[in-house]
Amino acid sequence: MERSIEAAAARPLKRPWMTENRRGQLTAYLFISPFFLLFAVFGLYPIIFTIYLSFFKWDALGPMTYVGMQNYKWVVEDPTFWISFGNTLLISAMGTVPQLIIALVLAVMLNSGLTRMKKGLRVLYFMPNITSIVAVTLVFSTFFGNHGMGNWLLNTLGFDDVAWNSGWWGVKIAIASMVIWRWTGYNAIIYLSGLQSIPTDLYEAARIDGASRSQQMAYITLPLLKPFILFTVLLSTIGSLQLFTEPYVFLGQSGTGSTRQEGITMVIYLYSEAFRNSFFGTAAATAVMLFLITILFSVVNMWVSNRLGGDTEGRG
């Protein structure tokens, strides 16, 4: 058990220790207060105000007029909102699923003890993650230009050109590939650290019992890796629901292109409602809905992974 200052101070000593104790408490409050002050002003208040704002019509300058649920109604009836919703989910799935699977494969291979290059490879795999999203998007936009490397590769393989920066699927694939490139190595390294935390005697015992490598994978590795998988799934889901920079920069070439329907995401929708159209009310309603969707997805994620976890335990 860890001992703390108060535990030491609370030992039956002379009376002055009591005031010392209070002093300690006040000091602690003082030490943690910057976070709470800042959060109150730039965290809590804005959240409450966003919810409040979502019931008003406001252009950020003039007076606010109460409109009830009208903002939500406007948003829900706006086809662009639903396009942004669908795009966000689709790009999330296209970016997250391959990313996590590739990361898992790489981590298992890195951990297999076959390679002595583990340290060096970890550094290389992590490099994409330190690059800014803007830089990633700019580099990838050369791959996905009309005569870029993407189409050259397709042509060499005998396929037709894909309109990466204007086609409905093209844009989504381009954006998803940027997400995959930037995050796969990050997740691989998290999985690798998870794999390294699994005690090797478990595998030895399994081998003695005659378990094959795929059985070891199914009954030891994956169940014990579950917390790490849960962590990465949750993080990448929340992250991809907030997708903004990649499509904004990628489609923003001609100034106003970022709201084009192939690539508009929910945060871009929110951004353009507020800062282009000055509809702060509907933007606030969008923010609230985005938040609710995020919570919903996190809960569903946890629920599904718990169910899956229960399954493997049942079979094992």
Partner: peptide
């Protein structure tokens, strides 16, 4: 507070900054 997305408070924060 880690789980609250940044975008949720962006409009009022902008207003505060203004």
């Amino acid at each position: 507070t880690l789980f609250v997305p940044q975008q949720l408070g962006v409009l009022p924060t902008y207003v505060i900054m203004a």
